[in-house]
Design a protein around this nucleic acid. Structure first.
Lengths: 330, 330
DNA sequence: GTGAAAGCGCTAACAC
DNA sequence: GTGTTAGCGCTTTCAC
């Protein structure tokens, strides 16, 4: 049992030095065809696989990619995780998941660890983190991919381009004659403020309306917060006839509360989510939402990481088109 | 930047040898109080953290725990992952997620890797894997925790105790006068057959009914398969008036199809899921389901792992009570 | 109670 | 085109 096979074993079996075995495997220097064949045969015969721990110690670079997200139980992030894992598996890397529960301390702790252990990469959806928290990571030479709505400094980044989709959503809502547009936004201290809210505000003007301050409420990105926020909005003297939510979990919570209050959606209040998490099509009425493709984001993160490990020096920002998915709730 | 701090640095700063630093940190041999204090001060001052790669190389044991699941995008597994991660973080371990998409080849490949790289542990929900596939892992000394309905041999295991819950579900269904009970089960080649189906069959007899062969259909654990299965069942000459599903995703698919066919749930057909994945309470009508607590399973897996790393030799099987959650669909 | 030193398996100079 | 070898940072035996 066990009996780990080392490069030295392979070298002995193939009648070469362990350096040659290493070079055959890495392709980092030319090897005579006959030698290569002999080594490969020995590798197969003995069932050798490289010890990534030893490799990491020697190269000073771990094989781990940290995926740092606020809430793994949100299907959006779970899908992202699955896609990322698939994307980096071929590179011999492993994805370690880190659930921060939207807490800055955890976000920071995990970044610190990524630096200390010299991770192969970090993919992060910052929630309460500041861009400056990333600097030491980048400076330590750990590739960072940020998925965020707002620019996050000198890192590779994936961001939604939600302008068209948001405009369509507004079109959908206002063409029905709705004018009192509300927003259930994320917490005030979230990273980057609330770009989704700001985009909406800017575009609302184009539709001859606006998002008044008294129709903006805030909370965590959870179902519970959504219910609370919706309740608050509907208690206003002039309640809204359309509510945009920062993500789908919030929207679902809003729907819970609407039912509780006996408010018809979409007849009395139109409801629009964000992300198109897997459950958006499950609730009734089905949730209209601004779709941001989690799997695509995961794939892209893997690609950006790979490019950087391949030596790309400049930072890239990739925009991913969001898409308005009209269902029944608006 | 970078400038990794090593034990040697700490040792120098504290005026001791690196061995002593190691012993202070591990507590594996007695250290004079004064020495301990000096070392701890140096550790703090320099911001030292142990290099897990070097430690792993030396001890022959990686700090990774593989979580091998069929479908990470299923919130059930995402929640399990989050809980497991939380449970092992304090041990200095990392959870690497592995999505097998229910394919035996991937399950096997990941187990092989866990052996080769001497992972600190494996937590697996086998889907098409055979118990014999686990033997080499256990023999290699890698702690394995299996989450499965059926006994899986000499490993630590977490299993549902669904007898009471299933009885309650049957009670609920039959007390309404329903007699034609159908099942949408998992694939025929899934690991361990279909214990949920068998349990249901056994208990059905106690309620003076049965699950006839022609009312059992099979498919993957997906929404799509659920829709297909439900369509198939309702096409039978004598369609069912109650349908039990192997998991909630299947049940949701069944609900999709019911709506498409204009079949009222629960009036015409009662529907019962399994797991209580987060979306069970989102669909309308809300899904009655046999709840199996994902977070609890994740926590327990972490605990079993910890116990084994602490030296427990015997294998444990922990039963987790499932619970019938009655909502609107049955 | 403490230190010296070997060595885990690999990579990458450096030498030929 | 190939081999020799130092050394990554830690743990642990052995010696004192």
């Amino acid at each position: 049992m066990g009996e780990r096979v080392t490069m030295a074993d392979v070298a002995r079996a193939a009648g070469v030095s362990s350096a040659t075995v290493s070079y055959v495997l890495s392709g980092k220097r030319a090897v005579a065809p006959a030698t290569r064949t002999a080594v490969e045969a020995a590798v197969d015969r003995l069932g050798f696989t490289v010890n990534t721990t030893a490799r990491s110690l020697r190269t000073g670079r771990s094989s781990l990619v940290a995926l740092i997200v606020p809430d793994l139980a949100n299907p959006f992030f779970a899908q992202l995780a699955a896609a990322l894992e698939e994307g980096v598996r071929g590179l011999g890397l492993h994805v370690v998941v880190c659930n921060t529960r939207a807490r800055r301390e955890e976000e920071r702790a995990l970044l610190a660890e990524a630096v200390q252990q010299h991770f192969a990469g970090v993919v992060i959806t910052p929630f309460r983190l500041l861009p400056s928290d990333l600097r030491p990571v980048v400076e330590a030479g750990v590739p960072v991919v940020v998925s965020a709505d707002v620019p996050f400094g000198p890192v590779d980044q994936i961001s939604p381009d939600a302008r068209v989709a948001t405009r369509q959503a507004l079109q959908c809502v206002t063409s029905g004659g709705r004018r009192r547009i509300a927003v259930i936004a994320g917490p005030r201290d979230a990273t980057g403020g609330d770009p989704r809210l700001e985009l909406l505000r800017a575009l609302a003007l184009q539709f001859g309306t606006s998002v008044p301050r008294e129709l903006v409420v805030r909370g965590e990105h959870t179902r519970e917060a959504g219910a609370a926020g919706f309740g608050e909005l509907l208690g206003r003297r002039h309640p809204p006839d359309a509510v945009f939510c920062a993500n789908d979990a919030i929207a679902v919570g809003a729907m819970d509360k609407a039912r509780e209050l006996g408010i018809e959606i979409p007849e009395e209040v139109a409801l629009i989510g964000h992300d198109d998490a897997s459950f958006a099509s499950l609730v009734r009425p089905q949730l209209s939402t601004i779709r941001y493709p989690a799997a695509e984001v995961g794939r892209l993160a893997a690609q950006l990481l790979r490019e950087r490990l391949d030596g790309r020096e400049v930072f890239r920002t990739v925009k991913v088109k969001a898409e308005f998915i009209r269902r029944a709730s608006a």
